[in-house]
Structures are given as structure tokens and as C-alpha cells.
Design a binder for these strands. Structure first.
Lengths: 227, 227
DNA sequence: TTCATGGTTCGAGCGTAATCGAACCATCTG
DNA sequence: CAGATGGTTCGATTACGCTCGAACCATGAA
């Protein structure tokens, strides 16, 4: 009866509404201060502080002090992945918080998942890269092929820079709305950043929604559409 | 602040120690009765019954009545995957319930993950299938190649039978101990079943441990070893 | 230095939910 | 039918942990 890691501990951490809201807010990938997170959690700053230290102790967050501010972000991809998984279960159980409003549609189309693109367009990107042989699952991990590296370079993403980092270059992340994989890891992050750089897309500062401009959609479709 | 599915609801479900223990027990893939799960959860039958109806209502379980028994199993792969993810986080946070006893070592070597093989040998199997081109991530999903189908047939797994089911044939599942993918889905299940059929391995009825016989290990290594 | 702002710590209040005893219902056995 | 076993429902108890007010500490600005 007592085998394996202690699942309840951290599930309980996520299981509190205030903390869950904070974590969901952090899925935007941005680092947020204690007071911002208090706002997101719908709770006073004192309680937020308490919640955040618990989450931190549980290894779910990465805190950073900057001046008199304290910024929190998710501890890593694994955390984001579990959160997405939970969203999938929650959505599947039919217990959506709000019954598919317009916001929900936008979220399903394109949203930020920690630091990369998720939703319909996220999976579209992923599928396209796989179908054209730019990505393969040759070994246990997802790998960028030579052709893929070439493509990425032409898209003006600095690959060498990414490879220097300790985080894995490619990673799969399961999408709660699409129930399919999309690209995470530092390359996934880089793609989203490049989209923003090109002004194809901007992030809604208040939500996780990623808004693609008209030309952005056109360019995107041309490059990654019609798999 | 209120976007996306209600994560807290189901995280809270998993967050109770008794329920978490029950779910962990169900990761063995077997369907268990209320009284067995009460035992696993370390709680009386009445409370277990209450817990189980909550989990059921949350969509995490699949109940089946058989005579005067009521059997519960996990609702599906997605649930198992989230549980594995949570185990990963818990293990990463260093909060193992018991500090790596001998049981823990066995679990890391080979264990049942819902219905398929996980642990070191699970990832070894997966890697081998990928490396030899039997599995590819050609589309959004993991696919069995023609050569793979051939191999599977020679291993005397009835592929047509599997394809009839509604569940996906291949699926990736992230391993908490190895932090790498292994094969889930109906094919993953079939492999484990075949290993048992060949008497290469047996499941420890009390835990999730999969015990490979001496010859079982030898045959396994010969077929899937040394990637 | 004083004042303002951002966070933390302490303590008390309060609710929710886990728990179990007891009674009840359902199914199988003899 | 009676008796045994497996589960559920109900109610009362209890405890854990969320919550916020208030006081405190740290940093930056005037």
C-alpha cells in the first residue's frame, strides 16, 4: 500500500482553488510577483504568501528576488506538463469552469503553455514539423534532424544559442484541448518568441491567449499549414 | 483569473492520502473491489465507498458491477499518465515516501503502469522499437511501421485484434523513474501480456512490481537489449 | 531620517471534509 | 426461508488547513 512517491502531497498542493488559480496564471510563462498572484488567486497577500511558500517547498515553483519584489515562475516543463494533463482530465470530465465562452474558443485556438505555443495552432506546428521530417522520435527523445536544423536556421532562430542551455531542445507536451502533442522545450519556446518577434502574434497580457494578426495567420498557414 | 478548466477540483480529488493510495494501487491495471481499495487506502469500507464515488464522479474511475462485487479501475490512459506525472514531480521533489528500499529498486527496474510495462525495462523496450524503425512519430501520434507490424506479428501478438478496439494502438507515457517515454496504448498492453504468456515475467500480486525470470531477462535482452 | 511599498510571520477564527459507528439494502449460499 | 458477505447511506465527531487582521521586516524613495 505504500509504494512509490508520495503523490498526495503535491496533488493536494494543486488541489486548493487559490493555488490552482495561481499555477494556471503562471502557465502564461511569465514570472509574477506575490501581489499579482494574490490577485490571480482571489486572496489577500498574506495568504498568497503562505500558499506560495508551500508551492515552493513542494518544488513546483522557482522563486527569484529582485529588489523588493519576489517573482515566481513554474519550476519547469514537467510541472507545466502535469498541469496541462490535469486540465485535460478536468475538461474531459465536463467540468469546465465557464461553459465555452468566446475566451474559451480563443484559448483552444492558440495559447501559451508555460513558454511555448499550444492549442490548435500549436499542434499544427508540431504536425507540420514531424510530417516534413524536421523532427523525429529516433531515440527515446524527440530529435531535430539535419533538415530540421536547416529549416530552423532559415527561420532565423539561433540554434547554437539554444543548444548551450541545459534544458532539452525538444520535448513533447500533451495538449488538453486538442488531446495531441505539441512542441515544448527550448525550441518550442524559441518558435513562439520568433512569432512574436515577427509580429505574427502577441500575447494577451491578461490571459494565456495568443492573438495572431491577420498577416500572422497567413504567414503561419503558408509555412506550417495543410499537413 | 478564471480561464480554462477547473484544475483544482480533480487535483483535490487526488490530493487526499487515502484516495491517492487507492489510485496508486489501481496503477497496477487490475480492477479492485471496494474492500480491497479500502485496505489499500488504509481506511474503513464506509469511507472508501465515499471516496470512490467522489473519484467516480470526477471521471477518474470506471466502475463495473459484478454480482455483489463492485470493481473499480482507472478511467483510462490519460488518468494513468497524469498520475505518473505527479509521481515524477513527487520523486523529483525528493519526497519519496520510503527512502529507496529494495522494493523501490524493483519498481524502478520493471513495474506495471496501468496496463503496460514501465521502468527501466519499459523504456528499453520503447527505445529498441524506435531505434529499429518499428515505431515512428510520423504524424501527431506514434505509429507502428510496416516493419513494426511484421515484428509484432512474429512475436505472436494479434494485431488485427488490437486494431478493432477503440483505444489508440500506440501511445507514449512518461516514466517517473526514468524520466523518459515508454510504450502505452493497446500495443503496450499486449506486449506485457505476451511477456506473461511466455512466462518471461509475472506480476507481484501485492505491488506494481513486475518480476522477470532468469530466462525471461535473457530472452528480453536478446530481443530488445543493447540499443 | 522618515515615509511608502512589497512580503513575511503570528495568532485566532472558522468551514469544510475526512472519518467511523450504526443501520440499511443487495446479492449470493445453504 | 435464514444467514453471511459486500456496499451504501446517514449522522455526529473531529481535525486539518484556509483565511485574514495585525504587527513586523526589508527595500527603495524623498
Amino acid at each position: 500500500m505504500k509504494e512509490g512517491p508520495d503523490i498526495a502531497r503535491i496533488a493536494a498542493l494543486i488541489g486548493d482553488p487559490a493555488r490552482a488559480n495561481m499555477l494556471t496564471a503562471l502557465m502564461s510563462g511569465k514570472a509574477l510577483t506575490v501581489s499579482e498572484l494574490a490577485e490571480e488567486g482571489g486572496v489577500t497577500i498574506q495568504t498568497a504568501s503562505s500558499h506560495l511558500s508551500k508551492l515552493d517547498e513542494g518544488g513546483l515553483l522557482r522563486p527569484r528576488k529582485q529588489g523588493r519584489h519576489k517573482y515566481f515562475s513554474l519550476a519547469g516543463d514537467e510541472v507545466a506538463q502535469v498541469l496541462e494533463g490535469l486540465m485535460g482530465l478536468a475538461a474531459g470530465a465536463g467540468h469546465l469552469r465557464r461553459r465555452t465562452g468566446p475566451k474559451d474558443i480563443e484559448l483552444r485556438r492558440a495559447r501559451v503553455c508555460y513558454n511555448h505555443l499550444a492549442g490548435d495552432m500549436g499542434t499544427q506546428l508540431f504536425d507540420s514539423l514531424i510530417a516534413r521530417g524536421f523532427l523525429t522520435a529516433e531515440a527515446e527523445e524527440l530529435l531535430l534532424t539535419d533538415a530540421g536544423a536547416d529549416f530552423v536556421a532559415r527561420f532565423e532562430i539561433d540554434l547554437d544559442d539554444l543548444r548551450l542551455k541545459r534544458t532539452p531542445l525538444c520535448r513533447e507536451c500533451l495538449d488538453w484541448s486538442e488531446r495531441r502533442s505539441h512542441l515544448a522545450g527550448s525550441l518550442g519556446r524559441a518558435f513562439l518568441a520568433r512569432f512574436e518577434e515577427l509580429s505574427w502574434a502577441t500575447r494577451d497580457p491578461k490571459t494565456r491567449v495568443v492573438v495572431f494578426s491577420r498577416t500572422g495567420v497567413k504567414e503561419f498557414e503558408q509555412l506550417f499549414g495543410g499537413v
